[in-house]
Design a protein around this nucleic acid. Structure first.
Lengths: 171, 171
DNA sequence: GAGCAATATTTGAAATGTCAAAGGTTTGGG
DNA sequence: CCCAAACCTTTGACATTTCAAATATTGCTC
């Protein structure tokens, strides 16, 4: 009874036998969600095995790598889509590991700026290269034209969702 | 205004500026991830506000709703893509709330089967209807043809990823 | 049947996640 | 000046998440 893996993949198909169904949006969402989970888990596993890092840590460091002067925690929170309280703990742990530095600027003592250390930059550099390769590998069977198309169309989805949030603002 | 609302920011923009045609897969991944996060957060917020439920609880109940006789915890784990240990806690809390029932069948005492209670079925029914509507709303600006196309092409991505996992499984 | 591998779930430690409330720090109007 | 509003981060309570190790039960082999 090892129908385990196939069950994961075919979940959505069971919902509606016909493509004609309503609930198209629901089915798209379920497929997006399961696919994203699948990729996330794979990346998580490799980050852990090869670098001893977690995915949220990688995401956070990616932002800091782009802004060498560092970022305020609130800005980090927005960019990583992680709550403020969560960022506090993440940065705390990264600081303990010597990958990130926390500084309070003289101008405004409410603010905390996080910044990659040299050690952090070196580590992230290696992780980023590997990370990019993993993604290329995982999507190797997908036609590059399709990849481009997906990138564009998912952008449309994101845009639509952004305009229909309940609590919401937009850029 | 709560802090979580401000998260409409793009994860991809940070990577995007410097690249041309390369790293297509990376950019697709970042966009998929941020879009999924955006939708998840919106659904989470609404589930919480309108039903006092969490997204993982909703996911778990969705599986049980489909299988009225109930499911073994291991099967639930596979279908929800959640680890075994996690399922234990989720079911525990749902049982506390009277939404789910846990039974050990006579045949095999290693097994625990989870099953929706009448209260659970009623609640899920309402949540599912709302949930479907939320998704239609959020994707309202996307052409249905594009939605179908996305559903198909993301399937291709999922398939490719499945074939390139490190911790191998396959049928 | 005694022992052992396989199966199914639970447990425990550590990290991540949300939300709400509380801490400090500016800033601006009176 | 002063005080209230606005801003930024931290804290605390709780839920979810993963992994690995521990439990418990069954099935198989000899």
């Amino acid at each position: 009874m090892t129908e385990s893996e196939s069950a994961t993949v075919d979940l959505e198909i069971i919902v509606q036998g016909t493509q004609e169904g309503k609930k198209l949006e629901l089915r798209l969402w379920l497929r997006m969600l399961s696919t994203t989970k699948l990729i996330s888990q794979e990346i998580r596993r490799r980050l852990r095995n090869e670098f001893g890092a977690t995915l949220p840590q990688f995401d956070l460091m990616a932002q800091l790598y782009r802004e060498r002067e560092g970022l305020r925690l609130g800005e980090l929170s927005k960019r990583t889509m992680v709550t403020n309280g969560n960022v506090t703990g993440l940065v705390e742990r990264l600081e303990t590991d010597g990958l990130v530095l926390r500084v309070t600027p003289d101008g405004d003592r409410r603010v905390t700026v996080a910044k990659l250390t040299a050690k952090g930059e070196t580590l992230f550099s290696a992780m980023a290269a590997a990370h990019e390769g993993w993604l290329r590998d995982m999507m190797a069977d997908v036609d590059p034209a399709i990849v481009s198309e997906l990138w564009r169309d998912i952008g449309a989805v994101k845009s639509s969702v952004s305009n229909h949030l309940s609590g919401a603002d937009f850029d």
